[in-house]
Amino acid sequence: MEIIDLTKTVSDGMPVYPGDPAVNIGMATTVKENGYEVRSLRMGSHTGTHVDAFSHMHEGMASLGDIPLTQFCGKAMRVTPTMELPNRIGLFFATEVREDVLEKILAASPPFVGGALSEELESLLLKNQIVTYTDLEKLEMLPIGEAFTFFGLPLKIKNGDGSPVRAIAVVGE
Protein backbone atom coordinates (compact mmCIF):
# COMPACT_ATOMS: atom_id res chain seq x y z
CA MET A 1 0.00 0.00 0.00
CA GLU A 2 1.23 3.49 -0.85
CA ILE A 3 -0.26 6.82 0.24
CA ILE A 4 0.15 9.71 -2.20
CA ASP A 5 -0.42 13.17 -0.77
CA LEU A 6 -2.31 15.25 -3.37
CA THR A 7 -2.40 18.37 -1.18
CA LYS A 8 -0.73 21.73 -1.71
CA THR A 9 1.02 23.07 1.38
CA VAL A 10 -0.82 26.01 2.95
CA SER A 11 1.64 28.79 3.69
CA ASP A 12 1.61 32.43 4.68
CA GLY A 13 1.11 34.66 1.64
CA MET A 14 0.54 31.79 -0.80
CA PRO A 15 -1.25 32.63 -4.07
CA VAL A 16 -5.06 32.62 -3.91
CA TYR A 17 -7.85 33.01 -6.45
CA PRO A 18 -8.33 36.72 -7.30
CA GLY A 19 -10.71 38.25 -4.77
CA ASP A 20 -10.31 35.49 -2.17
CA PRO A 21 -8.93 36.37 1.28
CA ALA A 22 -5.15 36.35 1.61
CA VAL A 23 -3.53 33.59 3.64
CA ASN A 24 -2.05 34.83 6.89
CA ILE A 25 -0.40 32.38 9.28
CA GLY A 26 1.23 33.80 12.38
CA MET A 27 2.52 32.72 15.74
CA ALA A 28 -0.05 33.21 18.50
CA THR A 29 2.02 31.59 21.25
CA THR A 30 5.46 29.98 21.52
CA VAL A 31 6.87 27.20 23.65
CA LYS A 32 9.57 29.58 24.91
CA GLU A 33 7.11 32.28 26.06
CA ASN A 34 3.93 30.31 26.79
CA GLY A 35 4.93 26.68 27.25
CA TYR A 36 3.05 25.65 24.08
CA GLU A 37 2.96 26.60 20.41
CA VAL A 38 -0.17 27.79 18.59
CA ARG A 39 -0.50 29.45 15.18
CA SER A 40 -3.24 31.82 14.10
CA LEU A 41 -4.78 31.00 10.72
CA ARG A 42 -6.64 33.39 8.46
CA MET A 43 -7.68 32.23 5.00
CA GLY A 44 -10.65 31.71 2.75
CA SER A 45 -12.67 28.51 2.61
CA HIS A 46 -11.31 27.82 -0.89
CA THR A 47 -7.61 28.05 -0.06
CA GLY A 48 -5.12 25.59 -1.54
CA THR A 49 -6.37 22.06 -2.12
CA HIS A 50 -10.05 22.28 -1.29
CA VAL A 51 -13.50 20.80 -1.78
CA ASP A 52 -16.51 22.78 -2.99
CA ALA A 53 -20.01 22.34 -1.59
CA PHE A 54 -22.99 22.76 -3.91
CA SER A 55 -23.76 26.09 -2.19
CA HIS A 56 -20.41 27.49 -3.39
CA MET A 57 -21.92 28.46 -6.75
CA HIS A 58 -25.65 27.87 -6.25
CA GLU A 59 -27.67 29.74 -3.66
CA GLY A 60 -29.93 27.53 -1.58
CA MET A 61 -28.13 24.28 -2.39
CA ALA A 62 -26.48 22.04 0.22
CA SER A 63 -23.57 23.26 2.30
CA LEU A 64 -20.78 20.96 3.52
CA GLY A 65 -22.65 19.75 6.59
CA ASP A 66 -25.62 18.69 4.46
CA ILE A 67 -23.57 16.50 2.11
CA PRO A 68 -23.02 12.87 3.21
CA LEU A 69 -19.42 12.07 4.17
CA THR A 70 -19.49 9.28 1.58
CA GLN A 71 -19.26 11.98 -1.11
CA PHE A 72 -15.84 13.03 0.15
CA CYS A 73 -14.09 9.67 -0.06
CA GLY A 74 -14.16 6.32 -1.78
CA LYS A 75 -13.03 4.48 -4.85
CA ALA A 76 -11.70 6.77 -7.59
CA MET A 77 -9.76 6.75 -10.85
CA ARG A 78 -7.55 9.14 -12.80
CA VAL A 79 -9.08 9.45 -16.26
CA THR A 80 -8.95 11.41 -19.51
CA PRO A 81 -11.97 13.04 -21.18
CA THR A 82 -11.71 10.69 -24.18
CA MET A 83 -11.80 7.37 -22.32
CA GLU A 84 -14.88 5.45 -21.22
CA LEU A 85 -15.61 6.62 -17.68
CA PRO A 86 -16.21 4.09 -14.90
CA ASN A 87 -19.56 4.27 -13.14
CA ARG A 88 -20.23 5.51 -9.61
CA ILE A 89 -16.64 6.23 -8.55
CA GLY A 90 -14.75 9.48 -8.13
CA LEU A 91 -13.07 10.90 -11.24
CA PHE A 92 -9.82 12.86 -11.39
CA PHE A 93 -8.98 14.26 -14.79
CA ALA A 94 -5.41 14.02 -16.05
CA THR A 95 -5.92 16.98 -18.40
CA GLU A 96 -8.04 20.12 -18.37
CA VAL A 97 -11.72 19.48 -18.97
CA ARG A 98 -14.50 21.80 -20.00
CA GLU A 99 -18.28 21.72 -19.97
CA ASP A 100 -18.44 19.72 -23.24
CA VAL A 101 -17.80 16.53 -21.20
CA LEU A 102 -20.62 17.22 -18.73
CA GLU A 103 -23.08 14.68 -20.18
CA LYS A 104 -20.39 11.98 -20.18
CA ILE A 105 -19.57 12.73 -16.54
CA LEU A 106 -23.24 12.81 -15.50
CA ALA A 107 -23.81 9.43 -17.18
CA ALA A 108 -21.02 7.96 -15.00
CA SER A 109 -22.67 9.28 -11.77
CA PRO A 110 -19.48 10.05 -9.82
CA PRO A 111 -19.81 11.25 -6.20
CA PHE A 112 -16.88 13.64 -6.73
CA VAL A 113 -14.73 15.03 -9.54
CA GLY A 114 -11.34 16.74 -9.42
CA GLY A 115 -8.48 17.95 -11.53
CA ALA A 116 -8.17 20.90 -13.90
CA LEU A 117 -11.86 21.78 -14.21
CA SER A 118 -13.05 24.89 -16.01
CA GLU A 119 -15.16 27.19 -13.83
CA GLU A 120 -18.16 26.52 -16.07
CA LEU A 121 -17.82 22.74 -15.66
CA GLU A 122 -17.29 23.09 -11.92
CA SER A 123 -20.50 25.12 -11.63
CA LEU A 124 -22.47 22.56 -13.65
CA LEU A 125 -21.13 19.65 -11.61
CA LEU A 126 -22.05 21.36 -8.34
CA LYS A 127 -25.52 22.14 -9.71
CA ASN A 128 -25.87 18.39 -10.38
CA GLN A 129 -24.81 17.59 -6.79
CA ILE A 130 -21.34 16.33 -7.64
CA VAL A 131 -18.65 17.50 -5.19
CA THR A 132 -15.60 19.12 -6.82
CA TYR A 133 -11.95 19.18 -5.72
CA THR A 134 -9.63 21.97 -6.80
CA ASP A 135 -5.89 22.67 -6.64
CA LEU A 136 -4.77 19.08 -6.27
CA GLU A 137 -1.12 18.31 -6.95
CA LYS A 138 0.83 15.20 -7.94
CA LEU A 139 -2.11 13.70 -9.85
CA GLU A 140 0.46 12.59 -12.42
CA MET A 141 1.71 10.04 -9.85
CA LEU A 142 -1.57 8.15 -10.25
CA PRO A 143 -1.72 5.79 -13.25
CA ILE A 144 -4.52 6.53 -15.70
CA GLY A 145 -7.30 3.96 -15.61
CA GLU A 146 -6.33 2.26 -12.33
CA ALA A 147 -8.61 2.46 -9.31
CA PHE A 148 -7.43 3.79 -5.94
CA THR A 149 -9.08 4.94 -2.71
CA PHE A 150 -9.42 8.69 -2.21
CA PHE A 151 -9.94 10.71 0.96
CA GLY A 152 -10.59 14.47 0.93
CA LEU A 153 -12.58 15.26 4.06
CA PRO A 154 -13.59 18.88 4.70
CA LEU A 155 -13.48 20.70 8.00
CA LYS A 156 -16.87 20.70 9.71
CA ILE A 157 -17.73 24.35 8.99
CA LYS A 158 -21.27 25.53 9.76
CA ASN A 159 -22.92 26.54 6.45
CA GLY A 160 -19.59 25.77 4.75
CA ASP A 161 -19.42 26.55 1.04
CA GLY A 162 -16.01 24.86 0.81
CA SER A 163 -13.06 23.79 2.89
CA PRO A 164 -9.36 23.13 2.62
CA VAL A 165 -8.72 19.36 2.74
CA ARG A 166 -5.84 16.95 3.15
CA ALA A 167 -6.37 14.98 -0.04
CA ILE A 168 -4.77 11.54 -0.28
CA ALA A 169 -4.83 8.61 -2.66
CA VAL A 170 -4.26 5.10 -1.32
CA VAL A 171 -2.90 2.88 -4.08
CA GLY A 172 -1.91 -0.78 -4.21
CA GLU A 173 -4.25 -1.97 -1.51
Rank of each mutant, 00 (worst) to 15 (best):
I3K: 15
I3V: 12
I3C: 02
T7W: 03
T7N: 04
D12R: 05
G13Q: 03
P15W: 07
P15A: 05
P18I: 02
G19V: 05
P21Y: 10
A22W: 00
N24D: 06
V31D: 12
K32Y: 04
K32E: 07
K32Q: 06
E33G: 01
E37G: 08
E37S: 07
V38Y: 08
R42E: 11
T47S: 11
T47G: 07
G48R: 02
T49F: 04
H50Q: 04
D52W: 06
S55L: 12
S55W: 04
S55H: 08
M57P: 01
G60M: 07
A62Q: 14
L69E: 05
L69M: 10
Q71I: 00
F72Y: 15
C73L: 10
K75S: 13
V79F: 04
V79S: 08
P81T: 01
T82G: 02
M83P: 00
M83V: 03
N87M: 06
N87D: 07
N87F: 10
I89D: 02
L91K: 15
F92N: 05
F93D: 02
A94N: 14
V97M: 02
E99V: 14
L102D: 11
L102H: 13
E103I: 03
K104P: 13
L106S: 11
A107E: 12
P110Y: 15
F112G: 07
G114F: 12
G115V: 03
G115D: 00
A116P: 03
L117P: 12
L117W: 13
E119F: 11
E119K: 11
E120P: 00
E120I: 15
E122D: 12
L124P: 00
L124I: 01
L125Y: 15
L125V: 08
Q129H: 15
Q129D: 14
I130L: 11
I130S: 08
D135A: 06
D135G: 03
E137A: 03
K138C: 01
E140N: 05
G145I: 01
G145M: 00
E146V: 13
A147G: 00
A147L: 01
F148L: 01
T149N: 08
F150R: 09
F150G: 00
F151L: 06
F151Q: 07
K158I: 01
G160R: 11
D161R: 10
G162N: 10
S163K: 05
S163W: 07
S163R: 06
S163M: 10
A167W: 09
